[in-house]
Design a protein around this nucleic acid. Structure first.
Lengths: 236, 236
DNA sequence: GAACCCATTTATGTATACACTAATGAGACA
DNA sequence: TGTCTCATTAGTGTATACATAAATGGGTTC
C-alpha cells in the first residue's frame, strides 16, 4: 500500500477515534516524523483530510483538526436527513424487497446483539455492523454514485459524533425498532413511508444526542472537555 | 497565489469548459510541463480534482477526466434535488423575506436579460449571474456549512452539464419563472412550497436536458461526440 | 508465423534539498 | 518601561533526484 494511503488512514482513524483532538495543529514535519514517512505523501494525506472536512486550513499556514459542536452536529443532521431520506426513497423504488425484509427481521431480533454483550463489547461492534449492512443495502439499492459518495462523507463525520453520543442500551433498542421500520418500508416499496421513517429516526437520534450533549447534571465539567474549541498543540 | 492553486483552477476550468474531454489521461509530467510547474504542486491539484469527482484513478496509475452520460446526469439530479430542496426549505425557515422578494422581482424582469443579448452573449453570463445570486442567497439563508459544501460540489458538476444542455431562450424564460416561484415561496416563509417549487424546477430542467441529449433528429452523430467514453490521450 | 521472455523505457511514488514567508525573540531607542 | 525594529528560526511551498513498478518493444524460440 502507498505511504500516503497509510498516512491518510492513520490520521483519519486518529481523528475519528479522538486521539487527535479538534483544534490540534497537524504540522507537516511533526506528523511525517510521527508516521515515519516523508513530507510528500503526508501532504497528500492532509489534502484528502481537508477535502473530507476532517481538517481545515489554519491561518493560511498548516491545517488543524476541525472541531465538533452541538451546532455542527445539528447542521450535519440536516444534510444527513436530506441524503438519507432520498436514499431510502430511491431504495424503496429500486431495491429488492427480499433483502430488506431480511434486514427488517435482523433488526427485530437485534435485542440479543445489543443486550447480550452489553458489558463485553462497549463499542457495540455487532450491532453497528448490522446498521452498516442496512446502510450498504440502501446504497446499493439507491444505485446512485453521487448520493453514495455524499453519504459516505456524512457517515465519516457521523463516526466522530458517535464517540460523543454515549448510546445507552435503551436508545439502541429504540434505534433497532426505527431501523426495522425503515427496512420494512423499503421492503414494501413505499418511498414516501421509507423517507418518513428515516426522517423520524434521524430526528430522534439528533434529539438524543443534543440531550446527552447538554451536559447532564452531575458532570457539567465534561461538556467543555467534549467540545474543545481552542487550537492546541498536539495531544495535550 | 500558490502554483498548486493555479494548476487546480486551470485544470478545473479546462475540464468544465470541455477543452479536456472526458476520458483524457492527465499525466503528471505532461500536465506539469503544459502548466509550467513541477510535478509536486500538480499532484496536489490532481488530488483535489479527484476529490471533486472531476477526475478518477485510472487502472491504479494516473487519473482520467470523468465522463458524463445521461445516466450520470440523472443521478446527479437526484442528489441535486435532495440538496436543493432541503436548502430551499431551510432558507424559507431562516431567510430574510426582503432579500428573496427582491430576487423574485429580478427573475420576473429577467426576460430582458435573456432576450436582450441573445446574440451578443451566447453564454448568457448576465442571466446565470442572477441565478448564482439566488443560489448564494439560499446558501446564506440556509446557514449550513455541510449543505453549502455539498451543493458547491454538485454545482461544479452541473457547470459541465450546462455546456451540453443547449439552453434555448424558451427554456431560459421558463426557468426564470420557476426561479421566481422558488424565491417567492422563500419570501413568504413557506418551506414545503419552496421545496416543491425547487422540485418542479429540477424535474423540468432534467427533462429538458434528457430530451436535448436524446440526439434530436438530424444530428444523431453528435450524441456520441458529446458523451465520449473511451480514454483518449490528451486533446484528440 | 506466433507466442513468450527479457530489456528498455516511461510514469508514478517517495525522499530530500532549496526558497520564501511569517512568526518569534532579543536588543536598542524613545 | 514600553515599543519598534531587525535578525533568527521554524515551517510551508516548490523543484528535483532517486526508486520502483508497469507498459512496451524487440528478439528468440517453438
Amino acid at each position: 500500500m502507498r505511504a500516503s494511503d497509510r498516512a491518510y488512514r492513520a490520521l483519519r482513524e486518529d481523528i475519528v477515534a479522538g486521539s487527535l483532538l479538534p483544534g490540534t495543529v497537524l504540522g507537516e514535519v511533526e506528523q511525517s516524523q510521527r508516521l515515519g514517512i516523508s513530507r510528500t505523501p503526508l501532504r497528500e494525506a492532509l489534502s484528502r483530510l481537508t477535502a473530507d472536512g476532517l481538517a481545515a486550513p489554519h491561518n493560511g499556514r498548516g491545517v488543524v483538526v476541525t472541531s465538533i459542536s452541538p451546532e455542527t452536529v445539528t447542521e450535519l443532521f440536516e444534510l444527513r436527513q436530506a441524503l438519507e431520506c432520498k436514499a431510502a426513497a430511491l431504495a424503496a423504488t429500486r431495491g429488492d424487497p427480499g433483502t430488506f425484509a431480511g434486514l427488517r427481521r435482523d433488526f427485530e431480533n437485534a435485542a440479543d446483539l445489543i443486550l447480550q454483550d452489553a458489558g463485553t463489547d462497549p463499542t457495540r461492534a455487532g450491532y453497528y455492523a448490522l446498521v452498516a449492512r442496512l446502510d450498504e443495502a440502501i446504497d446499493a439499492a439507491a444505485a446512485n454514485t453521487y448520493l453514495t459518495q455524499a453519504l459516505a462523507n456524512v457517515r465519516l463525520h457521523l463516526a466522530r459524533v458517535r464517540r460523543l453520543a454515549k448510546d445507552n442500551p435503551e436508545r439502541l433498542l429504540a434505534t433497532a425498532g426505527e431501523h426495522a421500520t425503515i427496512a420494512a418500508a423499503i421492503a414494501v416499496r413505499d418511498p414516501a413511508l421509507a423517507a418518513a421513517a428515516t426522517s423520524v429516526h434521524l430526528h430522534k437520534s439528533l434529539e438524543h444526542f443534543l440531550a446527552a450533549a447538554a451536559a447532564p447534571a452531575g458532570t457539567p465539567e465534561r461538556s467543555t472537555e467534549k467540545f474543545p474549541e481552542r487550537p492546541r498543540k498536539d495531544n495535550p
